[in-house]
Design a binder for these strands. Sequence first.
DNA 1: GACGAAGTAGACAGACCGGTCTATTTATAT
DNA 2: ATATAAATAGACCGGTCTGTCTACTTCGTC
Lengths: 177, 177
Amino acid sequence: MAVCLQEHGYRSTSTTQILAKTSLSRGSLYFHFPGGKEALAVAAVQVSGRRIVNWISSEFASGPDSVAATSRLVDGFAAALGGSQFTKGCPVALSALEAGDQEPALQSAIQTVYSDWQRAISAGLTAHGMGSEDAQRLAHLALIQIEGALLLARATKSLTPMQLTKTFLMEAIGQRS
Amino acid sequence: MAVCLQEHGYRSTSTTQILAKTSLSRGSLYFHFPGGKEALAVAAVQVSGRRIVNWISSEFASGPDSVAATSRLVDGFAAALGGSQFTKGCPVALSALEAGDQEPALQSAIQTVYSDWQRAISAGLTAHGMGSEDAQRLAHLALIQIEGALLLARATKSLTPMQLTKTFLMEAIGQRS
DNA sequence: GACGAAGTAGACAGACCGGTCTATTTATAT
DNA sequence: ATATAAATAGACCGGTCTGTCTACTTCGTC
């Protein structure tokens, strides 16, 4: 489900597709997820969110500094995007734009995911000596930049936005750390 | 149609909705757009694309410098987003992520739109004295940043990403112009 | 083995989708 | 006025969607 949300989004991912992929039955789905499709999507978003948080933390933890970690993060996103014929960008971006007032739980889950990502980046920056205020601002900025780059790279089927973003973020972080 | 694409995207916008809004009939739609839904979406994307290009050009033309023009552009996007309860972000972002290999015409149209926007920004920057190479890079970067900010602002229902992006872009452009 | 709960299976309903089709109206040219 | 083209109207088709429903199987406990 997480992969389907990443590639096709919430609306375009049908429960029938999920059932076919998992070779489970409709009854099982609605037994384990009484909330139906939205509850399933919320769970998938949370899984994707945690996966990225763990990845961010591990990259910052494996040093040597914030600049190198950021470089690896952007490269990782770029590799995933390019390695999937530009179908796997941000795991939640499509759902984030699709989620309207009819899917409040999904909206809320996505807000939490983005907030968690920003905190993870911010924590990584402060762990390498950056001041808390600068770290929060820069983390927010990095998240914006990466999301924008993933969007444009996917749309234009080119990794140029990722490269630009990488060099730019490395410079910005290098100046302040 | 352009508004529907902006708010709900390609998949979630049904031809029936369009017909209801325009009070036209199904027959008329497929007479004027033999390509069906995708052809209609392509036309809408092109209209939105031109609208933004004209806006970018006019803001850069009304001076006094690149920094002020950029500030007005970001503010304009932020105002549109906030004034619509965070439903009207980038007019094509949602469609850009949705468009897969099944909608090649839509994909291509969106690529053209993004390319046009970048060129418009780049032209605006060079018109105010920036070197061509720097202008292209900064235009690309600004587009990435604005798209990312619109995405995150819409998802989190907060204008903070727009403000951050504005000050950041103003600083980046101010340094190089 | 008996029995109740937990879980699975898949048919079904009601609604909506995009696209095609024929019939009808409107405009244009002679 | 009439013939032809342009345009509109809306019923209709096959397909797909989400969610509900009942029947069946599996499992743990006595």
